[in-house]
Design a protein around this nucleic acid. Structure first.
Lengths: 219, 219
DNA sequence: GCCCTCACGTTTGTATACGCAAACCGGATG
DNA sequence: CATCCGGTTTGCGTATACAAACGTGAGGGC
């Protein structure tokens, strides 16, 4: 059916499709992912679909409850706290290293962009998340540590789900933008301590906001 | 041929076999891992072998140079430095959290065992590494953070190779034992700062020793 | 009426067959 | 002699076939 270099492998398509559906919530936590069912639904064979499921399991986005049944992983407040523990470890380290190794001008430009962010419109919010993704990418590039980038990639895959669960309020977004601006400024200034501590503060505030949003959502 | 639950899955056997051979050096960095060749050698079919290769690739132990050729990942001094960067981030965090959450008596007992270690004989060295593995396991249990444990598991898989590349000298082993004893003591004392800083010191010394050992080996 | 047992269906794990693309090699030609 | 072209071979990605095991439900026995 599909050729060896089919532009994109069937297993990649299956992985991307399932990843998107899990992150977007289309596949709710607890959803059972049967091989034949998902394979036919996504239009691939069982073999590449199995590969996609194993990759998702390695990411921790799905869990094999029993050898026979794999489900979309749950994500409760305890999981989010745990996620932020490792996130703090990785991102503080990343910030510290990027402050030492990064391109000052590049991060200065990013800091400036964080001041320009317009969070009033919905499209501005999308632009904002894109800007954060760019900062993350530049951090990874500056640190130049594949082990670290790989671990962060996994963490970020989970964070997409967290963001969806806890919708940010406008005032939190504004504060978040200011925090990011400070982080970028610290990176531009090559101030490793400030970059790490600003990251710590940002993640603390982000976690608090998320947890509060969750308790409000389920009174 | 093999049954569904053949005590242990063929893919698991293939993964374990390849992992061991990579960690032990039997499969040297750069070795090409052809699917059919390895499948016949390990006595499994291509399908489970592919799964094993993908898991190893996710761990970063093998890399797919092209769609046609996957090789055992190299590991030079820069890689080792990068590995220790993330290792420090994860283990310092782990130590800090375990100091807050762990069982004091348990870590006190481990600290005591680190004083008893006999490093004169070769078998003592194996016992020592087993003891370190036990400390790692108890740290993971105390922290109770699957994301963190999973990331550390990957790091540790690489560290086995590093240890093999750079044989520890007896004096380094003795110092290492003392450092571990202090870490365990800090955990027992619920002193998070001391646990984190002692871990930092230990990893610094370990890295220095390894890098020095490498430069001595290749003058 | 309840429980135990057996059988069938469903689902997974593994093996194998097939198709295509790229690399290698040989020969021919400039 | 070098270079290019075409055939062959090798090897991966995918699909499918097959076998085993777990779950479920029905039927019979106590």
């Amino acid at each position: 059916m599909a050729s060896v270099v089919d532009r994109v492998r069937a297993s990649d398509r299956a992985y991307a499709a399932l990843l998107d559906e899990i992150q977007s919530g289309a596949l709710a936590p607890g959803s059972v992912l049967a091989e034949v069912e998902q394979a036919t639904r996504l239009g691939v064979s069982r073999t590449p679909l199995r590969e996609a499921l194993r990759r998702l399991a390695a990411d921790g986005l799905v869990v094999q409850q029993s050898p026979r049944v794999t489900v979309v992983a749950g994500l409760d407040a305890a999981d989010i706290r745990a996620l932020f523990e490792i996130r703090r470890a990785l991102e503080e380290t990343s910030a510290r290293l990027a402050a030492q190794r990064g391109d000052s001008a590049l991060f200065a430009a990013l800091a400036e962009e964080f001041t320009r962010v317009d969070l009033s419109a919905d499209e501005g919010r999308d632009d904002y998340y894109t800007l954060i993704a760019r900062l993350d990418a530049e951090l990874d590039a500056a640190v130049a540590n594949d082990y670290l980038s790989s671990a962060l990639r996994t963490v970020r895959a989970h964070l997409v789900r967290v963001r969806r669960m806890a919708r940010d309020k406008p005032e939190r977004l504004a504060a978040s933008a200011a925090e990011h601006r400070l982080i970028a400024h610290a990176l531009a200034s090559r101030d490793a301590d400030l970059a790490a501590h600003a990251t710590h503060v940002h993640l603390h505030n982000a976690l608090e906001s998320i947890l509060q949003s969750l308790t409000e959502g389920t009174p």
